Amino acid sequence: MTVSRASVDGTCTAAFDPVRDLFAAKLEAGDEAGASLCVMSGGEVVVDLWGGVADVESGRSWERDTLANTYSLTKTMTALAVLVLIDRGLVDPDAPVGRYWPEFAAGGKGGVLVRHLLGHTSGLSGWDEKVSIDDVYDQEAAAALLAAQEPWWTPGDGSGYHAITFGTLLGELVRRVTGTTLGEFFAAEIARPLGADYRIGVVDEDPVRFASMIAPTSTFDYASLPADSLLLRTLLNPAFPPSITTDAGFLAAELGAANGQGNARSVALVQSIVSGGGVAGARRFLSAETVDRIFEVQSDGVDRVLGVPVRFGLGWGLPGPAMPGVPEGRVCWWTGFGGSVVVSDVDRDLTVAYVMNKMSAKLVGAPNPNEYLAAVYNCLS
Rank of each mutant, 00 (worst) to 15 (best):
residue 226 P to W: 08
residue 256 G to Y: 05
residue 155 P to I: 01
residue 112 V to I: 06
residue 309 P to M: 08
residue 92 D to R: 15
residue 145 L to W: 05
residue 368 N to I: 13
residue 170 L to G: 10
residue 328 E to I: 04
residue 255 L to N: 06
residue 79 A to C: 11
residue 205 E to K: 04
residue 312 F to P: 02
residue 35 A to N: 03
residue 227 A to K: 15
residue 66 T to A: 04
residue 13 T to G: 00
residue 24 A to D: 01
residue 52 G to M: 06
residue 105 A to Q: 13
residue 145 L to G: 01
residue 228 D to R: 08
residue 106 A to V: 00
residue 52 G to I: 01
residue 112 V to F: 01
residue 315 G to P: 11
residue 288 A to M: 11
residue 157 D to I: 08
residue 251 L to G: 02
residue 108 G to E: 05
residue 370 N to F: 11
residue 204 D to T: 00
residue 103 E to W: 06
residue 104 F to A: 01
residue 338 G to L: 09
residue 120 H to A: 03
residue 237 N to S: 03
residue 115 R to Q: 08
residue 213 M to T: 11
residue 254 E to G: 05
residue 228 D to T: 09
residue 189 E to F: 02
residue 48 D to F: 04
residue 55 D to P: 04
residue 229 S to L: 05
residue 293 R to Q: 13
residue 264 A to L: 14
residue 223 A to S: 15
residue 15 A to D: 11
residue 273 I to G: 02
residue 17 D to T: 14
residue 1 M to C: 14
residue 68 A to G: 09
residue 130 K to V: 09
residue 59 G to N: 12
residue 182 L to C: 08
residue 184 E to V: 12
residue 171 G to V: 03
residue 38 C to I: 02
residue 177 V to P: 08
residue 15 A to K: 07
residue 328 E to K: 10
residue 99 R to E: 09
residue 40 M to T: 07
residue 249 G to I: 08
residue 345 D to E: 07
residue 368 N to K: 13
residue 4 S to G: 14
residue 285 F to E: 05
residue 21 D to Q: 11
residue 106 A to Y: 02
residue 166 F to V: 07
residue 201 G to P: 00
residue 275 S to P: 04
residue 192 R to G: 15
residue 245 T to Q: 12
